[in-house]
Simulated scan of single mutants.
Amino acid sequence: MNIKFDEQADALYIKLNNSEIIDSEEILDSVTCDYGINDTIVGVEVINVKQQPIDLYKKIAHLFSVEELGNLKEFFNQKRVLLN
C-alpha cells in the first residue's frame, strides 16, 4: 500500500498493488476506484481532499483490509493539520 498526497492538486491516491488498471468508477462524490482483473481494487483516488470531512477514511473503509485501513487512518491522523 502506497499513499500519496499531492498538495497542489489537492488529491490523494491510495495504491493497493501494482496491477494494471482495467476500469475506473466514481463510487462517491470525489472518490474514484481503479479496478484491475477480476474487479480487484488497484487504487483509490480522492480529489478535493481539503474539502472532505476529517473522517473521510470511515466512508471508504469498506474498500480496504483491516491492515490497510489502519495504515490509512494513521496517514489521515498524521496529515490532519495539512488536510484541514
Score class of each variant (00 low, 15 high):
84 N>D: 13
43 G>Q: 11
31 V>M: 02
24 S>E: 13
37 I>P: 09
30 S>W: 07
34 D>T: 00
27 I>G: 05
54 I>N: 08
51 Q>R: 11
62 H>Q: 10
57 Y>A: 10
67 E>Y: 09
80 R>I: 01
50 K>Q: 09
34 D>M: 00
39 D>I: 09
27 I>K: 09
22 I>K: 15
2 N>Y: 11
21 I>H: 02
37 I>L: 15
59 K>T: 06
4 K>Q: 15
24 S>G: 03
11 A>Q: 04
75 F>H: 07
21 I>L: 00
51 Q>C: 06
73 K>V: 15
4 K>H: 12
24 S>K: 15
38 N>G: 03
13 Y>A: 02
46 V>W: 00
32 T>I: 15
4 K>A: 11
27 I>F: 08
45 E>T: 05
2 N>E: 14
7 E>W: 07
43 G>S: 07
70 G>E: 15
10 D>P: 06
61 A>E: 12
77 N>E: 14
59 K>M: 10
44 V>C: 08
61 A>R: 08
74 E>I: 11
32 T>P: 02
58 K>P: 01
63 L>V: 08
12 L>M: 06
45 E>L: 01
14 I>Q: 12
84 N>K: 15
46 V>F: 01
10 D>G: 04
76 F>V: 00
65 S>W: 04
42 V>G: 02
41 I>H: 05
52 Q>L: 00
